[in-house]
């Protein structure tokens, strides 16, 4: 580096310098990166015990260089509970997909949140089961075609897509709950802010932190990366509104608790 140059952007050390296995346009890599940046900025790297889930992000431990344990499908919040109860001074988070968290792991996430476990959850909602090849998820939108609802999801047959952030916010133990998206730079920056809060409610001992991150899966949506970003704005956000649904750190009437339509 020349003397008059200033380094303004670099990769966090905790993020491994290696290509990922993700498809082009997938947002998992962006979410990993945000988590990595925050672990470093918040001085949490050496305190972290990460609980990985089953899904495309099962290899998260190849990209974030922190202690990690692999949970069975859907059980990451229970595993995280065990970790946190055994080591209350560690920073514990799970990173889960929508099939993992909102279907097979529904009981575990609800009760972990309701107990107010001092853990943080990064919930990547891409409206499909990515790893197994694009089957219908509990979050699949009405009319969305997947390999197991080839005619499009139908409310009468499959029910309505589940809104996890709203559900988690309704539980007594959650301290911070937000929904964000990764479809543009503004929303990526917003996501990082919300993740920081979700981590802070853990480190300050306030309670359970949860961020639902609307993410693209161009491969299983069968569209280009750009079209996938447009789909997040045009189809996902109208059904899954962005916003902060609960924030125990703020005055409930204040700005932070405002629900809804921001950030489209």
């Amino acid at each position: 580096m020349y003397q008059d140059e200033e380094l303004v952007f670099s990769c966090p050390q905790v993020v491994a310098d290696r290509p990922t296995h993700y498809c082009p346009g997938c947002h998992h890599g962006v979410a990993h990166r945000l988590v990595g940046e925050l672990l470093e900025e918040m001085g949490l790297v050496e305190k972290t015990i990460m609980v990985t889930a089953i899904g495309c992000s099962v290899f998260l431990y190849n990209y974030l260089l922190v202690d990690a344990v692999e949970a069975p499908h859907g059980r990451a919040p229970a595993v995280a509970t065990g970790v946190k109860r055994a080591k209350p001074d560690k920073f514990v988070f799970t990173y889960q997909g929508d099939g993992d968290l909102a279907s097979i792991g529904m009981a575990e996430i609800m009760h972990c949140a309701n107990r107010g476990e001092r853990v943080s959850v990064v919930f990547v909602n891409n409206t499909v089961y990515g790893m197994t090849g694009g089957q219908m998820a509990p979050t699949t939108l009405i009319g969305q075609k997947t390999t197991t609802c080839p005619g499009g999801r139908c409310a009468e047959r499959e029910g309505m897509p589940i809104k996890m952030a709203e559900i988690i916010a309704s539980l007594g133990g959650s301290a911070y709950v937000a929904r964000t998206a990764l479809n543009n730079v503004k929303n990526i920056n917003k996501t990082k802010k919300c993740l920081r809060k979700a981590f802070e409610v853990q480190t300050s001992g306030l309670g359970f932190g949860f961020v639902e991150v609307l993410s693209a899966c161009p491969t299983n949506w069968k569209m280009s990366a750009i079209k996938a970003n447009e789909r997040i704005a045009n189809e996902m956000i109208p059904y899954f509104p962005l916003g902060v649904f609960k924030d125990a750190t703020a005055d409930v009437t204040g700005e932070a608790a405002g629900k809804g339509e921001e950030g489209k």
């Binding site: 015990i49 609980v51 344990v69 949970a71 069975p72 059980r75 229970a78 595993v79 995280a80 509970t81 065990g82 970790v83 946190k84 109860r85 055994a86 080591k87 560690k90 009981a107 575990e108 609800m110 009760h111 107990r115």
Partner: peptide
């Protein structure tokens, strides 16, 4: 120490997994 009455045996055993990993 810690005692948790879990939401199910599935969860209890997975909590055990987390604690023993530590």
């Amino acid at each position: 120490g810690a005692f948790v009455q879990a939401e199910s045996e599935v969860a209890a055993a997975n909590m055990l997994l987390g604690a023993t990993a530590c």
